[in-house]
Design a binder for these strands. Structure first.
Lengths: 355, 355
DNA sequence: ATGAAAGCGCTAACAA
DNA sequence: TTGTTAGCGCTTTCAT
C-alpha cells in the first residue's frame, strides 16, 4: 500500500506537506512546483488515501448508511437507492446500503446499526417503501438521520401526493375522460388524502364537478370481487379510472375485460406504480404516475449531508424540518443541476371513444 | 465516546490489559478478578470498540461488501442479501450492500469499489441475478472476491441447475403427469443444459421415455405467440409443462385458458421463479421451484470468510474453486446449523385428470 | 513555504 | 500477571 510517507520520501518533503497538497489545502502555503511534483508522484504511484486513518483522525468518515428493511424486496427500492447513491457520489460520500431485515424492532437490525456506528458512519437514511408513519430504531436516536418515503418526527422526505393525484387526473382529462372514478384503499394511508385532493383539484381546474359517488375504496381479499362489478353496473358512464396503485388497476382491467370494454378505447386507466412488473405486464401496459423514488433518495442524501456538514448543500434545505414534500414540478427545475431525471411514464393513455 | 483509556483509568489498569480482556485474549494472562472488573466497567459505560481504530491497526476491517448492479431491482436480490447478511452476522462481519449501477463496466462502479477498498473492505461478493458468464470489474482483480449466481474465473457460487430440473420434473411426475413438455429459452443460457439434464434424468428415473419433440424454446417478442398454440395443436396429449421461468409459464397459462384447459386439472405447470410477483399473481398460483437465492448468499459469504481468514469455516470449502454448485438437498442437511431454510414452493400442483 | 511533533483509539511485541 | 512502548496512516498545530 502506498502511503503519504512514500510520497514524502520520493518528493523529499515532509508528510505534512504531502497531506496539505493532496487535500487541496496548498494554495498559498506550498510552492506550486513542489505541489505539482507531489501530485505527479501520487498519481504515478497510484496513491489512494487510507480512509480508515483519515476518518480516525478527523472523526468524519464520509460514509452514509441507507437503511431499509424492505431493501431489494420491491423494484422501487432500487430507484431510491440509485438516487441516494448519485447524490452521495456527487457530494463525496460513500453510500452503503444495509438491509435491516425483520423491521425496526428486531434485534438484528439494532446490531447492524450499532456496527455501523462503530465504523464512524456520519449519518443515516432510514427508508420505507411507502409513505407511512414510522418509528425510528432506537440506536438511531442520537444520530443524524433523514427518513425517506415515510413520516416521522425526524426530518422526513415524502412524495408530493397532491401533485401525484393532480397529475394522474389531468392525464385522464387530457385523454378526454369526463367521468373519472377514484379507486382507493380502505386503509387509512397517509398517501391517500393528498392524492384525493389532487384528484379533486384537477377536476375543478377543468370545471368538472366532483362526484363523491365515483370514489370507491377496495381491498383485495375483502369484498373487492363483488364491489367492482357493482360499481361498473352503477356507473356505466365512467370513462376514466385513477387507481391508488397498480394492483387496483389490475382489478379494473379484469372487470373491464370481462365486460368487453376495451382499455384505451372505452375507458382509460391510470395507476400509481407500486409493482413495476404488474404495470408493465398488463395489456395494454398500465399508464402510471411514477412515484419520485429516485428524487426522494437524492433529496434525502442532500438533506442529510446538509445536516452533517452543518450547512446548506444547495438546493437541499438544512432547515425545514420535519417534512419535505418532494415537489415533482419544482424538482424538475433542478433536474439538470442535480442530474436527477423526473420520470412520468405515459405508456398508454388514449382518448376514450365510448359512445 | 468512551474509549479503552477511560476504562483503564476507572479500573486502574493499563490500556493493554483492557484490550486483552475486551478481545477475549485474557485467558491465563489477566487475573479473573481484574478481567471481570474491566468487563463490568465496559458494560456499564456502554463501551463500543472503535472499529476504525482497530481496523487501522490490524488492517482487517471485518467488512464485506456485497456488490450488485441489479441490487434491489429484482425481488430475489433481497433473498440473496438476506442470506449473505445472516452469514456475515453469524461470522462477525458487517455486510454492506453497494449497488454499482451501470454494470461492471461503468466508471461509477469502479469508483464505488475503489472507495470501498479505501475503507479497508476485507472482501467482496459480486452478485448477478441469474447464472451467466461474467467479468469481474477491474478494481476487484487484486481483492478477495466470490461471485454469486454467475460464473467466472473467480470462485463462483451457482444454483445446482440439474437438481432444479430434476425436482421440477419429479414434481410433475408426482402429480401424475406422463407427457411432460419442457418450455425453455432460445438463448444460450448457462442454466439451461443443467435443467434439461435434470428433466431427462427425472423422466428416466420413472422409466418415461424422453421425447425431444416435447421440448420447445420460446422467447417473448419473437414468434412465441404463434409457436405455443401450434405446440398445443401438435401435442394434445401433453399433461405437464416444466417452464424455464415464470414468464414462460404465463404464456402457457394464457394459451391453456384460451383452449379451455383447466390448469391443475387438465394440465399441470411448474416454473422456475424469476419474478415472484408474476408467479403469485397467476391464477391458480404457479407452482415454482425456487432458486436457492438465500442459500447462495449464505454460501458465498461463508466461502469468502474462509478465504479472508485463510481457513475453512465449516461447512464452506475454502478450496473447491472455481465453482460451487449450491446443492439443494445437501445444503438441506446443514439447514439447522446454518439457519438457512430451503424453500420449495408447492403452492399448486394437482394431479391432472385429463381423460 | 515547510517540517516536527502530537495524537485519533487500538493492538501487540516485549519487558518487568 | 500486568505495563511500557511503538506504531497503523493521517491531520493539524505550532515552530522555523
Amino acid at each position: 500500500m502506498v502511503t503519504m510517507k512514500h510520497i514524502a520520501n520520493r518528493a523529499g518533503v515532509s508528510i505534512s506537506t504531502v497531506s496539505l497538497v493532496l487535500n487541496g489545502r496548498d494554495a498559498g502555503r506550498v510552492s506550486p512546483e513542489v505541489a505539482e511534483r507531489i501530485r505527479g508522484i501520487a498519481e504515478s504511484l497510484g496513491y489512494r488515501t487510507n480512509r480508515l486513518a483519515s476518518s480516525l483522525r478527523t472523526s468524519r468518515s464520509r460514509i452514509i448508511a441507507f437503511l431499509s428493511d424492505e431493501v431489494a424486496t420491491t423494484p422501487f427500492a432500487g430507484r431510491m437507492i440509485e438516487g441516494a447513491q448519485d447524490a452521495a457520489r456527487a457530494l463525496g460520500y460513500l453510500l452503503i446500503t444495509v438491509g435491516i431485515s425483520g423491521g425496526a424492532k428486531s434485534p438484528g437490525s439494532d446490531r447492524e446499526i450499532m456496527a455501523l456506528k462503530q465504523y464512524g458512519t456520519d449519518g443515516f437514511i432510514y427508508a420505507r417503501m411507502f409513505n407511512q408513519r414510522t418509528l425510528l430504531p432506537q440506536p438511531l436516536s442520537d444520530c443524524k438521520v433523514v427518513v425517506a418515503d415515510a413520516t416521522d418526527a425526524a426530518p422526513s422526505i415524502v412524495p408530493d401526493e397532491h401533485s401525484i393525484g393532480f397529475k394522474a387526473t389531468s392525464h385522464l382529462l387530457d385523454a378526454g375522460c369526463r367521468r373519472i372514478a377514484y379507486v382507493g384503499t380502505i386503509h387509512n394511508m397517509i398517501a391517500q388524502p393528498g392524492r384525493i385532493s389532487g384528484y379533486m383539484d384537477a377536476l375543478s381546474s377543468r370545471n368538472i364537478a366532483f362526484d363523491p359517488e365515483l370514489m370507491i375504496n377496495v381491498e383485495s381479499g375483502s369484498d373487492e370481487a363483488a364491489r367492482i362489478p357493482a360499481f361498473f353496473d352503477r356507473h356505466p358512464d365512467v370513462d376514466g379510472f385513477f387507481c391508488f396503485n397498480d394492483t387496483r388497476a389490475w382489478s379494473i382491467y379484469t372487470e373491464a375485460i370481462r365486460r368487453g370494454l376495451a382499455i384505451g378505447k372505452d375507458i382509460a386507466v391510470v395507476g400509481v406504480d407500486n409493482h413495476q412488473v404488474i404495470a408493465e405486464a398488463l395489456d395494454p401496459p398500465l399508464s402510471t404516475v411514477e412515484l419520485p423514488h429516485y428524487e426522494m433518495g437524492y433529496w434525502a442524501v442532500g438533506k442529510l449531508v446538509s445536516m452533517i456538514e452543518d450547512m446548506t448543500v444547495s438546493p437541499f434545505p438544512k432547515e425545514g424540518y420535519p417534512i419535505d414534500r418532494v415537489p415533482l414540478p419544482s424538482l424538475e427545475e433542478h433536474s439538470a443541476k442535480l442530474d436527477c431525471k423526473l420520470r412520468i411514464k405515459q405508456s398508454w393513455v388514449r382518448p376514450p371513444q365510448r359512445t
